[in-house]
Design a protein around this nucleic acid. Structure first.
Lengths: 185, 185
DNA sequence: GAGACTAAGACGACCGGTCGTATTTACGAT
DNA sequence: ATCGTAAATACGACCGGTCGTCTTAGTCTC
């Protein structure tokens, strides 16, 4: 049984490096050095670099499960939940790993399915929140919740990209304002 | 004087490869093979791979100048111009080179400035069209044209990313519908 | 012949991954 | 509980290949 902290260290280091530098610009050597794990051990923990990449995506998604819980907070109207969720996601200079790797890797067979599933999961989570909002009256009802969710996600990811190149959280604030206006009844 | 078609061939091949596979996943060898140019000649035409990357971005932007002319079509209301422009941009399985390379390369000194400038130019072009729309009454006036332009661009880029992972133009159609609703007075 | 240009192949660094050996763990017998 | 052995795991050194770039020989033009 390998030491659990080696795998975790590799996962942490991989996630950080892929997020900051991108997937193909990051080598296995760099990850193992950063994780303080001998390179020969890498393949005891991950079958391949691709496997680590997929694991990093899954970890990134799971790391934001707490923020996603805000989308299900029954004590708030739907629109307010959404806004709190986006505020909780917040700004990062490196942007969003899912968006970044979608741009870089969506055309690769090894990644497309997982990326596609993440987008779907994300859309579903947003959609359920917005459907609740439609029931509680905080969200417009003339467009299906699913389409609204797709719009939210697209605008958010575009804003994150803009924030990345601008090195500023302003586009995220703009997106939140716009969404309040767009989604209100 | 190098043959002009070699440089063009390299630029075309580089643009296509960077767009389809991403920057770091594309090697100089692949580009020269695709362009039918000897590898040793590459550096007679481009100082470095980075230089080609930057040239490819500029080319991509220039290739869409014709579509951008639609934004300035004085015969149409501003909102209609915008929609025609987005329709003219259309769907591509590879997404948008500017968006893709922003995600992949915005953190690199060699690329940030050019990417940032492209986003600014794009935003300015959209902003002028929307300001015209505010004057002609086709676009809402309660939000400055610049902020609307940023929103348009963010939503579009996010939708392009979504379209890339979905392999479908549907997100782009959604974005156009949403923008009509969002921008109308 | 001189200078400019072209381009084949070499360069050092890096790539993801493999493999033989060393180390650790697990298990059965005593 | 201890020990010997087998199995599993870890990992240092290595693999063949690719990377972007450069060097230098060859070619062309004046």
């Amino acid at each position: 049984m390998p030491k659990p902290n080696h795998k975790e260290a590799l996962l942490d280091a991989g996630l950080a490096a892929f997020h900051h530098r991108g997937y193909h610009a990051t080598g296995v050597q760099e990850i193992v050095s950063s994780a303080g794990v001998p390179k020969g051990s890498f393949y005891s923990h991950f079958e391949s670099k691709d496997a680590l990449g997929l694991a990093a995506l899954a970890r990134y998604w799971e790391d934001r499960a707490k923020a996603r819980a805000l989308l299900r907070d029954a004590g708030l109207p739907g629109l307010e939940r959404l806004d709190r969720y986006l505020a909780a996601l917040g700004y990062s200079e490196d942007g969003c790993l899912i968006g970044n790797l979608t741009a870089e890797l969506a055309q690769l067979d090894a990644f497309r399915q997982d990326l596609s599933r993440l987008w779907r999961q994300w859309t579903d989570a947003l959609s359920q929140c917005l459907a609740d909002g439609q029931r509680d009256g905080s969200v417009r009802t003339d467009v299906p919740a699913t389409e609204l969710a797709r719009t939210v996600l697209a605008l958010w990811e575009g804003a994150v990209l803009s924030a990345k190149v601008e090195r500023s959280p302003k586009p995220l604030n703009m997106a939140r304002r716009t969404l309040r206006h767009l989604l209100a009844p």
